[in-house]
Nucleic acid binder design. Structure first.
Lengths: 221, 221
DNA sequence: AATTCATTCAACATAATTATTGAATGTAGA
DNA sequence: TCTACATTCAATAATTATGTTGAATGAATT
């Protein structure tokens, strides 16, 4: 694959970027890094993968320009290179959603249909949050919540949703969100809350998209 | 790579789409299909690749939902599945452009710097076309021009640009475009016209983006 | 200096991707 | 039916990607 003419060389470069997205583990890393910068070990724990494996995936993504890294003492923190990476990820997801059948089926097999979760748009939620007519819950782990969350959102990790569901007022609507549009935790949270008879919906996507849209968010002290 | 839990299955689906983009030949096919539907053989001729090879790449893209196909007599015509494919391609290119260094260098090695070609935006060109103050030339091959081109654009394939350059009025500005933002033909056209002392610029991208932006275009009879 | 710990590197085995070849399939027309 | 032709399929070889292991590197701490 020797690159002689510029056209070939360009396509080769573009293909390298696409290849960096072309692996499920790396996509999961992108989704986690979209929540905020992370060390190699922190990511390895979240994905339940060997550290060396994660390190190599991160290096591959760095070569392609998806992430950047910075040493901080003994740790190396990786972060998404820029917002374009999330735009590209969203575009790839969109193609997958429109095509497959398979994506629908996968989600449907575990939860109800995606539509039945009645996703609420960013704009609508933002408007209703002003009225104070909705309880917003962040179902991600506390460390991700700490790096940034919707204004006024309560952090209730999925493991605690059953126990906490007693605390909600029955009539009041609850909106759950997590890492992104296909993050399964918010699907499960809504399903669990509905089993308890509560009015629950999903935010259509997650915190990264909220931030990318320029909406305000809070960071824990 | 057995897919047990839904999260893994989703990432796997998304990765399949990204992988379909992760090959230079397939990206070139996407760019050609963005000009209009094509048969396998027509694409094979344009890429100078064996037919069986092109057929397999197209089938891989079809499995991933990038293209659809339809038999028409002895031929099988492939087309882009939807506009989302171009959006994803543009997003991938954007990541590559922002990262590499390499992309800049490749273009710079053959032409002047990309900036020196003074790309003109779609909006600006559309405005100036109303005034009639600019000559627009389409430097793609005639068959692609026939499938659709900017209103009033003259088709001058790259091979004829030298000869035709005599025809232009020296003072009048010429804008060249071709398949997309990195299509090398428009770079070469501008360079050739400038060597003749003409005022030439590039459209920032190509016909597919023009159409995707909802601007009007012409189709040959 | 020695130790600890996070990360990276190097080497290896396995799996996936790619290009190539020739045969098979399917369609149109003689 | 026979032929021509576009496309697909099947088999192969070469290349590249991936995951695993243990050793090497780099930075902080003792």
């Amino acid at each position: 694959m020797s690159i002689s003419n510029p056209k070939q060389a360009l396509y080769e470069q573009f293909a390298q970027v696409a290849k960096a997205f072309g692996n499920p583990q790396r996509l999961e890393l992108v989704e986690h890094l979209a929540q905020g910068p992370r060390s190699v070990e922190a990511l390895a724990v979240k994905l339940s993968l060997p550290i060396a494996n994660v390190s190599q995936h991160l290096q591959a993504m760095r070569r392609a320009g998806l992430v950047s890294s910075e040493r901080e003492g003994k740790f190396v923190n990786y972060r998404l290179a820029d917002n374009g990476v999330l735009v590209a990820f969203a575009a790839i997801r969109s193609v997958a959603e429109r095509h497959s059948a398979e994506v629908e089926r996968v989600v449907r097999g575990w939860f109800d249909r995606r539509d039945d979760m009645e996703p609420i748009s960013r704009e609508e939620l933002a408007a209703r949050m002003v009225d104070g007519a909705v309880t917003v819950i962040d179902v991600r782990p506390p460390d991700e919540y700490a790096l940034g969350h919707l204004p006024g959102a309560i952090n209730i990790p999925l493991s605690e949703i059953e126990a906490m569901s007693e605390e909600f007022q029955p009539g009041r609507e609850v909106v759950a969100y997590c890492r992104g549009p296909w993050c399964v935790m918010s699907f499960e949270a809504v399903a669990a809350l509905r089993r308890k008879g509560l009015r629950a919906r999903r935010l259509e996507d997650g915190l990264p998209e909220w931030k990318a849209a320029g909406l305000s968010f809070e960071v824990s002290a």
